[in-house]
Amino acid sequence: MSTFPEYTADEIKQLQSSDNVLSVVLNFVEQGKLTTQMLTRQTKPVKKLLRKIDSLVIDNGILYRKIHDIECGECKQLVIPETLKHYVLETLHNLSGHQGTERTLALLHKRCYWSDMVNDVKHWIKTCERCLVAKNPFTKSSSINGFVNSM
């Protein structure tokens, strides 16, 4: 699994198929049919993802979203189950130098997808302790004052 090499394809399949939303979406994509009546009976998160059904594909049992990207042409984004969101955000934000919202979204966009990704990234960055410390002018000035006063 090249998107997240820490996980095997079988582990990703298992995580997706045990996810409350993705298991339902996988079923619809496998069947290849979705009626309005079927859609109305679904939960809000399922409906939100099913709006993208034309771009959803299953490859070797794993759900992806196909997109056209300027840099890579047509690429497949791994559809992330709920249980992996924290790991993905931590990996791509924290281990990539605590980039801002746009850069973190760009890194994610090339690899994966989930319905509320933009809001989740914004929230993650707003609550990232390291980012808050780096952006807080009082933290910088108080440490400078402490250094000056100790001289």
Results as ranks from 00 to 15, higher is better:
V57H: 14
H109R: 13
K52C: 06
S23I: 07
M151P: 05
D59G: 02
P5R: 13
A106W: 10
K110Q: 08
G32L: 05
Q16D: 02
L49N: 02
C75A: 11
F4H: 11
L108R: 01
E102C: 05
S55K: 14
L108T: 06
C72Q: 11
C72I: 13
L34Q: 05
Y7F: 15
D69F: 06
S115D: 12
Q31N: 15
S96R: 04
T43Y: 03
V25F: 08
M117P: 07
K140E: 14
K76G: 01
Y7I: 03
H68R: 09
E11R: 10
F147P: 04
N27E: 15
D10N: 12
R130C: 09
I125S: 06
N27D: 14
F147R: 09
G100T: 08
G32D: 03
Q99I: 05
Q77S: 04
L84M: 13
P137I: 12
K140T: 13
E74T: 11
L26T: 00
T127G: 14
L56W: 04
K126T: 10
L50Y: 03
C75M: 11
V29G: 04
V118D: 14
I67W: 09
N136L: 07
Y7G: 03
S150D: 06
Q37S: 11
V133A: 14
K110F: 06
K44M: 08
L50P: 00
T35L: 04
I58T: 01
T83I: 15
K135P: 02
H109P: 00
L92G: 00
H93W: 06
F28A: 10
H86F: 09
A106F: 13
V121T: 05
D54Y: 13
N20Y: 14
S96Y: 10
K47L: 02
I62P: 02
K140P: 04
L89V: 04
M151V: 06
V29D: 01
D10W: 08
T104F: 10
